[in-house]
Design a protein around this nucleic acid. Structure first.
Length: 370
DNA sequence: AAATATGTCAACCGCACGTGT
DNA sequence: AACACGTGCGGTTGACATATT
């Protein structure tokens, strides 16, 4: 149960949480700058599941001193634990504002939507779910939602229907775009196909709270991204910007203030507030399409970004780091398009790999990460 | 009933980043 | 500028629970 090392082992010369760290002798190929010493003496700290007494000590300490300086907490609270472990226990379990009941269908839907837009940014996603931690969300995604999506015929990595991914395979010669993980795709696809072939285990609408709506969201989300990789990234960057902005202002607030078109957010910029129709679904759908013309694309994206940037005291527009990144993405996209050398090299590489997979189809059966 | 497979989730790990000195 | 330290984050592990054979 506990990850305890045998007590007979002699302590390593790493110092302890109560004394200055002793010099660490590293292998010749590692400099002291390459490896950071452990945050605490791992042989003198307890690991594994927390007991009720330990929880009580943390709670007592936090109620008296508040959170912060976690490295000092074990000593002050009388615990044989690493400070990092104490912080984790508090943030993931003991915090009084945490929910411990199971996820609601609304929460599920929000997680899936946000994951489709910003990927595995669990902390940002968790900030939109009051009472949930990034660990909760991550675990729930890995154990439940990923599987559900696969069963619905949707690749949980790209959020595209498997049928579309298969079509993409045909279009580009057997390889997915944007560094899709072939291993996970083939595994999930196999999983979905096996389920489809078994009528008794066919997916029912009860499996997901709103399967039709969810499918529509995924399909809509991905219509644009597979045509335009840089647009996909642009959308993600904008989403991260918006979500982060929202998170920082309504931390632990009610998500309904964001999702309801009738309620105005308490933290959006004045211009965004003036729109006061913000909702996740609107956002996801709104960004799903972009003109194919690069000039129009740029105008449109700049126009959108202007809505989110505030003029400073001098009346000048402040440059947002995320906006700078999106501009860079767009300009890079243009330069990439003009680089025939790069694209031909890439195509050659893809052709070679395609040949390889044709010759050795079994490679697709095994996990294979890009 | 026992063995095995699978799922869940708390906890750990290592890296990155921000801040203070 | 360089370094130390604290904290946050995402990926991974492994113990336990549950389902299946």
């Amino acid at each position: 149960m506990f990850h305890l090392l045998p007590p007979t082992l002699p302590p390593l010369p790493l110092g302890s949480s109560t004394s200055p760290p002793l010099p660490i002798f590293l292998p010749f190929f590692l400099s002291s700058k390459m490896v950071r010493p452990p945050c605490c003496d791992k042989l003198n700290v307890k690991r594994g599941l927390w007991t009720a007494e330990e929880d009580a000590k943390i709670l007592a300490h936090v109620s008296k001193h508040g959170t912060g300086n976690w490295t000092a907490v074990p000593k002050k609270a009388g615990l044989r634990r690493c400070g990092k472990s104490c912080r984790l226990r508090w943030t993931n379990y003991l915090r009084p504002d945490l929910k411990h009941e199971s996820f609601t269908p609304q929460e599920e839907e929000l997680i899936v939507r946000l994951h489709a837009t910003i990927g595995s940014r669990w902390s940002i996603i968790a900030q939109q779910l009051p009472g949930r931690t990034d660990n909760d969300v991550k675990n729930y995604w890995n154990s439940k939602l990923r599987k559900k999506l696969s069963e619905m015929g949707i690749d949980p990595i790209t959020h595209k229907p498997f049928s579309q991914i298969l079509a993409d395979y045909g279009n580009i010669g057997g390889l997915p775009k944007n560094g899709t993980r072939i291993g996970s795709l083939t595994r999930d696809l196999k999983n979905a196909l096996m389920l489809k072939s078994d009528q008794s285990s066919a997916i029912t609408s009860e499996e997901f709270s709103k399967p039709e709506a969810a499918q529509e969201i995924f399909l809509t989300n991905n219509r644009n991204s597979h045509d335009n990789p840089s647009m996909n990234l642009l959308t993600q960057l904008k989403a991260i910007k918006l979500v982060t902005e929202a998170s920082s202002c309504i931390h632990h607030g009610n998500i309904s203030s964001l999702s309801s078109p009738t309620s105005s957010s308490t933290c959006l910029t004045p211009k965004a507030k003036s729109l006061h129709t913000f909702s996740w679904s609107d956002f996801l759908l709104e960004d799903a399409f972009l003109p194919s013309d690069p000039q129009e694309q740029e105008n449109m994206s700049k126009g959108n970004l202007d809505l989110q940037s505030e003029p400073n005291a001098d009346g000048q527009r402040q440059v947002d780091p995320i906006e700078e990144m999106t501009d860079t993405v767009l300009s890079n996209g243009a330069s990439e398009a003009s680089s025939s050398y790069d694209s031909s090299f890439l195509e050659a590489m893809l052709d070679r790999e395609n040949d390889m997979f044709l010759e050795f189809p079994s490679l697709l059966e095994e996990p294979f990460y890009y």
